[in-house]
Write a protein that binds this DNA or RNA. Structure first.
Lengths: 244, 244
DNA sequence: CGGCGGCTTTTTTTCGAAATTTCTTGAAAT
DNA sequence: ATTTCAAGAAATTTCGAAAAAAAGCCGCCG
């Protein structure tokens, strides 16, 4: 089931089976995971100062775990560090969003092309499974905005990772995940309501089928379109969050 | 002179003008820089355990700075963390080297194409300057193996960064730098002697000129060729460092 | 002879406080 | 009124030791 050979991948290494980062073990890892989640969800807003005392209290731990988590997050680009002046949640802007979307499209383009070219039967099956779970998550969700659903989120992430899972480069997978995280943050900050379950399922199904049929160009086009649509939505939202 | 808009870039942010990472400020940052350098140079060999006591003594600091540096390096992929079992220098292998070379070629391909498409006059000038410094570093070096020369190393890195400096994505620049670092480590571990200064200069000159002439395809081809040659050398070296 | 539990030792991880730096405030001087 | 400077406050960074976990050791039992 797992594709990467495991060894360098930082984020997914502590995932129980696939997707979720429960990352246990040390306090530092727990704080890292929770804080990452809080930043992605917008609970810790862009630009917010991350004072030691505040975080120690919030996560009920001492100084060291907080600091270790912050240092990891800063390498992930979710937090910025200014020597001697502390940490803050990295800012957002229209320009950043555009840069992000551009970069993501480049990276996913390569990764997807490679994945389709080299994906084996295992990859196909993992993809089908990921799609099945995603569509079920969408159907099962009774919320008017299922994007809030933690399960949907995990399935959606897993699907996109499964797509490129056979690209043959842990580096690329890592990069793609970083970019996915960032996009995810913008999506949530924009506060977009996901209103059309049927279309959402079909869009993902089309991507999956094209991938499995090894129609490389089609798949890439569909995925780019999918991502572009998301980016447009984010940018055209009232976007009170982006001072721009 | 600087191209990136500055803000998220982690590595280069503390560089005085360009290239060198003296990254001062906090002890943690100093240790991070020195340790990174020690790993890249092979002074801390692949797979080596990084015990707290050893590092505290080596860098003459307390526990916290060492730990912060380790956490940052682990996100960079130069160090692997195993919760509750400490840190070690990330391993090397033939497969990893191939994966790395592949990924680097993909990333640099995009970055270079974009840089050539969007590079302005400032970019051209920075590139010319970087080349000039590189060629001077090569000529001035009296060592039989100028790759040992710290100055050459910095100039070489600066040149390759200048090439893609106008790609328009800080993400991509960051990724490219990570991959460059890793390649650099393999290069040094392989212990290759750089014996042909003249050819080295001309190879870089050809790349620079093609880039400035905006011959996108040519430039990419030249760069790929350049990187491929390096990868082949590394893999065909006696490579006592790679268990396979 | 080999594997298994319990003990000691080593190493990692975490805490709380000291040291250092930055930020704030307010009074004095131009 | 504005700027400058210094003292106090707040926050970050660093240290050293305590707590927790892993690794090594040795005798014991199957």
């Amino acid at each position: 089931m797992t594709i990467a050979k495991d060894g360098m991948g930082d984020e997914m290494s502590n995932a129980p089976s696939d997707g979720v980062l429960t990352s246990s073990g040390t306090m530092a890892s727990i704080v890292y995971t929770r804080m990452r989640s809080d930043i992605l969800s917008g609970d810790l807003g862009p630009g917010a100062r991350l004072r030691a005392e505040f975080l120690r209290q919030r996560y009920a731990v001492g100084n060291s775990p907080v600091r270790e988590a912050l240092n990891r997050l800063s390498s992930d680009g979710l937090v910025v560090r200014e020597d001697q002046k502390g940490f803050r949640v990295s800012a957002v802007s229209k320009d950043d969003m555009l840069e992000l979307a551009k970069t993501r499209s480049w990276i996913e383009n390569i990764a997807l092309t490679q994945s389709i070219a080299h994906g084996d039967v295992e990859w196909e099956e993992a993809l089908v499974l990921a799609f099945h779970r995603l569509s079920r998550a969408i159907r099962n969700s009774d919320a008017t905005d299922y994007a809030q659903d933690a399960n949907w989120e995990q399935c959606h992430r897993a699907f996109h990772m499964a797509l490129i899972g056979a690209c043959g480069s842990r580096w690329l997978l890592n990069f793609a995940q970083q970019l996915y995280d960032q996009s995810d943050r913008y999506w949530k900050l924009a506060g977009i309501k996901n209103t059309d379950p049927g279309n959402d399922i079909e869009e993902h199904r089309a991507i999956m089928e094209a991938a499995i049929d090894r129609r490389s160009d089609d798949t890439v086009a569909l995925l780019q379109n999918h991502c572009q649509k998301v980016a447009d939505l984010v940018l055209s939202s009232k976007s009170s969050a982006f001072k721009d």
